[in-house]
Nucleic acid binder design. Structure first.
Lengths: 244, 244
DNA sequence: TTCTAATGTGTAAAAAGTACATATTTCCCT
DNA sequence: AGGGAAATATGTACTTTTTACACATTAGAA
């Protein structure tokens, strides 16, 4: 339940018998970055005793005055300090017993950020980037949440220009290809990859070269500005319903 | 808020100041069927005064002892009497002001059912099938929910064999094509359509013919059993988290 | 200067998608 | 019983996309 759940126990007791308002609502963020040629996810040591040896995703209860997208954005900002991030809702997990302290449903978001541009707000809870492929178990149902979000990312990555949120502004085609390979866990043919990316017409050739690489430098590219879409696709708050 | 929200006002008042347990959780079902060559959705007259002239989707508050998938299944069953239905979670809508009587977040599901096999549980609220293409406005944010679910259906329909849940067990290729055309709002070339369906290898030729058609009857097909997937893709309740 | 490691590029074959026309079968009507 | 209407069934040429695959070039490092 992370922080934010600062309810006095007495109050909790008082409402626990009520049928329809005793479900808490949280959001959990699967925050991906790409670092050292690996896809990583931001995790933190669980502060629940039940899960004392496990890590969990970053999440928090939704405040009564914020919508879900705002809540996920807040969590991301609190932890990474980043202002302009790509976030997308994926799925809501609502099993009865998914949280040991009570009924909490959670809406999962995934987020893509450029590891270079963020500074983690360090806590004493061992907040850190963890390679996705090493993660076997997480607290709560967070492993299932991670898997679902990774699945969604994989679905989107070939169709939509979202992957660029994981890279710095300027990148080489090799970096881009390695990132695809890391996300999809496949290896791709270089020529076919370049052809395919070329067809999509997402990139601008910057006429600049890589620097500080221990081999022949490659050209640098950036994403065409019209494809930058860091804010959620769906509007964060739908218009108030109009009475006929 | 539909039925189910039978809280006494005093109790409501008592808890309304609490920060984190005053968000109600509902599910809304976008129940599609295919009838008279049109895609239709099940709607009901809103029972809120604010929306007295509008229809809404079928929804209800989630009970404390049921998970989200179960709740959507219950709603569907209560209204259509069907046992074995295709249901899939799409998106959770959580704007602060989406519901006039308070903070209610809702998880939207879409469902596909064969119109022939259900009998609506009639109410005095004008529950009925409404052609999707005629719907301009619904109560709450239900029009946005409908649009989102229709969009998801369209995304899935060419890739996954879900569409067959809208058809009877046996169908002709013409019926199938007309259904695709209704969902996608396009018209398709018959020969190319048959080729494409053939490649997917989803169908079994039943060696039977249509009957009671006013023209030359076509062959009947059915979906191969291994592609029937009426239950939700994601497990309806995730395993209890295991402590390390 | 030579070696190494990566960049950059093209072509042929296979698969999938698109556009398009004619013969056939059944029903229905006279 | 025959003829017309309406829908079924089917194939081919063209284009586009996908896949498999090899060699010359460049810059850094030794």
């Amino acid at each position: 339940m992370a922080k934010g759940a600062n309810l006095k126990t007495a109050e909790l007791e008082k409402i626990s018998h009520l049928d329809y308002f005793n479900i808490a609502v949280s959001v959990d963020c699967v925050i991906f970055c790409y670092e050292e040629k690996e896809l990583k996810v931001l995790v933190i040591k669980s502060d629940l005793e039940e899960f004392s040896n496990l890590y969990s995703l970053l999440g928090d209860l939704v405040r009564p005055d914020e919508d879900l997208d705002t809540a996920s954005y807040r969590i991301l900002q609190e932890r990474t300090g980043m202002e302009d991030v790509y976030l997308e809702q994926v799925h809501t997990f609502g099993s009865i017993d998914r949280h040991p302290s009570g009924r909490v449903i959670t809406t999962a978001y995934y987020s893509l950020i450029d590891a270079k541009h963020q500074k983690l707000r360090l806590t004493n809870n061992d907040l850190h980037w963890h390679p996705v492929r090493n993660i076997k178990k997480l607290a709560f149902d967070h492993k299932a949440i991670l898997d679902t979000c990774l699945g969604r990312l994989r679905e989107q990555v070939m169709e939509h220009p979202v992957i660029f949120n994981l890279l710095p502004e300027k990148f080489s085609l090799r970096e881009l290809q390695e990132l695809y390979e890391a996300i999809l866990s496949v290896s791709l043919d270089r020529r076919n990859f370049r052809k395919k990316i070329g067809i999509k017409d997402w990139l601008v050739d910057l006429n600049e070269m890589e620097e500080d690489v221990p081999h022949r430098p490659g050209k640098l590219y950036k994403l065409k500005p019209e494809f930058k879409r860091k804010t959620p696709r769906r509007k964060s708050s739908s218009p108030r319903p109009q009475v006929a």
